[in-house]
Design a binder for these strands. Structure first.
Length: 425
RNA sequence: GGAGAGGUGGCAGAGUGGUCGAAUGCACCGGAUUCGAAAUCCGGCACACGGUUUACCGUGUCGGGGGUUCGAAUCCCCCCUUCUCCGCCA
């Protein structure tokens, strides 16, 4: 959520900056709501002050044993007017709140202006895509060829967009998550957390998934939703808190499954594990002093890159343009890993600075140097998407016979297994 | 699942219809004392919003919502939540 003071003070600038991300802010509506609110609120407060004064006088009179019936006769008229005004005030305030919650974050000045993913800017590349002396297969052919990846059975149990992994592939999947978690918690200074996989609407509102993106979520029962990313439970750890400034920055990492309905993505990435209803992800979250958030985003992005580098997976870093930046983010870098099976770079991590956007929704603050409560900044990023990382390992490390040579870094997690290969039989 | 007890400022904890946004203690900030510190003493110290604008005035907030009343932290109803005991259970 944006600071309403910013809209009051400099509406034109806000409109212009939001326009770069393709969001048409309804300025006349804002001004109309604001004027109505101001009018009703001042009138309401005047009446409340009148009532308070009268009641206080009645109390004083009764305390002295004086008859107060004159005063008491004056109150009902005030109250009648108040009932109406207070109701109208609530309506305007709710409308304003809903209006504000629907506005996306302002992109930072450095974000390249553009319409969609085609306008994203490549910042750097790491690693050389391997030259194959055979036609590389994609992870579906590889996994099924090894009898370790099974989509039909997953469909039988659940529905499409689910996967079943077996044996050493299931183990490799677990190894990847462990490996990532160990590096972030052991080398990058993150505290590992285990969090609920079901969250309430308030938490989702805090990080910005609700109210706008309910159709992307799986709802369970009356009040709970399966998490679409660990960002939701992890970031909300600080919701409503006033954090001692010396505790900043807070760095947290969690490995969780993520659940997405993928509404509106029919026909996209229907083959394989790229786009699933359920996938695992290791997520890094930082809560920082506002002065430090830009540096923290660079740092966190580097932490995600470290994983790809240790696994020897070629990737590039993309600066998302204004039009492709997510609702809550002020700035986002995507990491795209090279997938030989698709002959393309594909997103494997998304790292964003949300500035105070989520903190304002969550009421997550710290006491600043002046002793005033101030909103923290939040940053998060995948480090990495486990399923897509598994895909990348399979495709980049495949051999001509369909076997997979495992990267050195993972071998300690694979009880000595160095290759995935089909049974001899 | 059954029974009971609670949710008040950063924390602890008073307050059961009227000058209560709320005693007291701790923590914190400023000052005195001290060579300095501890201890002690004095003072300050919730948040949000609105109006005016450095001072100021007003409104709202005592888990959330609704009700009674001229007036609610205090009475009534509903919900959420925490704790204790019993049962069950990975």
């Amino acid at each position: 959520m944006l600071d309403i003071q910013l809209l009051r003070k400099d509406l034109a600038t806000v409109v212009a900056r939001l326009a770069t991300r393709g969001y048409p802010l309804d300025a006349p509506r804002f001004e109309a709501l604001e004027n109505e609110r101001k009018d009703i609120q001042t009138r309401t407060q005047d009446l409340q002050a009148q009532r308070n004064t009268l009641s206080k006088q009645i109390g004083m009179a009764k305390g002295k044993g004086i008859d107060a019936s004159d005063l008491m006769q004056q109150v009902p008229a005030v109250n009648t007017a108040l009932v109406d005004l207070e109701a109208r005030l609530t309506i305007v305030q709710d409308a304003m709140q809903a209006f504000l919650e629907g506005i996306p974050n302002l992109p930072q000045a450095e974000v390249p202006v553009g319409k969609n993913e085609h306008d994203n800017v490549e910042l750097r590349r790491w690693g050389e895509p391997r030259a194959f002396d055979f036609t590389p297969r994609d992870h579906v052919d590889l996994g099924e060829g090894l009898d370790l990846l099974d989509f039909p059975t997953a469909v039988k149990i659940a529905t499409s967009r689910f996967a079943l992994m077996r044996g050493d592939l299931a183990r490799l999947h677990r190894a990847l998550a462990q490996f990532m978690l160990d590096i972030h918690s052991g080398e990058h200074g993150y505290e590992e957390v285990y969090v609920p996989y079901l969250v309430n609407a308030e938490a989702l509102r805090g990080t910005g998934q609700l109210p706008k993106f309910e159709e992307d979520l799986f709802k369970v029962g009356d009040n709970l939703y399966l998490i679409p990313t660990a960002e939701v439970p992890v970031t909300n750890i600080v919701a409503g808190e006033i954090i001692p400034v010396e505790n900043l920055p807070i760095r947290l990492v969690a490995h969780t499954p993520c659940f997405r309905s993928e509404a509106g993505s029919y026909g996209r990435d229907t083959r394989g594990m790229i786009r699933q209803h359920q996938f695992d992800k290791v997520e890094m979250v930082q809560m920082v002093h506002p002065d430090d958030s830009s540096a923290a985003l660079e740092e966190l992005t580097g932490h995600a890159e470290t994983i790809l580098q240790r696994l020897g997976l070629p990737y590039r870093v993309m600066a998302l343009c204004t039009g492709d930046t997510g609702f809550s983010a002020a700035r986002t870098y995507d990491l795209e890993v090279w997938l030989p099976g698709q002959n393309a770079y594909r997103e494997i991590s998304s790292c964003s600075n949300f500035e105070a956007f989520q903190a304002r929704r969550m009421q997550a603050r710290f006491k600043n140097e002046a002793g005033k409560n101030e909103f923290i900044h939040t940053i998060n990023g995948s480090g990495l998407a486990v399923g897509r990382c598994l895909v990348a390992v399979l495709e980049n490390y495949q051999e001509a016979d369909g076997s997979i040579t495992l990267p050195e870094a993972l071998r300690p997690y694979m009880r000595g297994v160095e290759r995935l290969h089909a049974d001899e039989s």
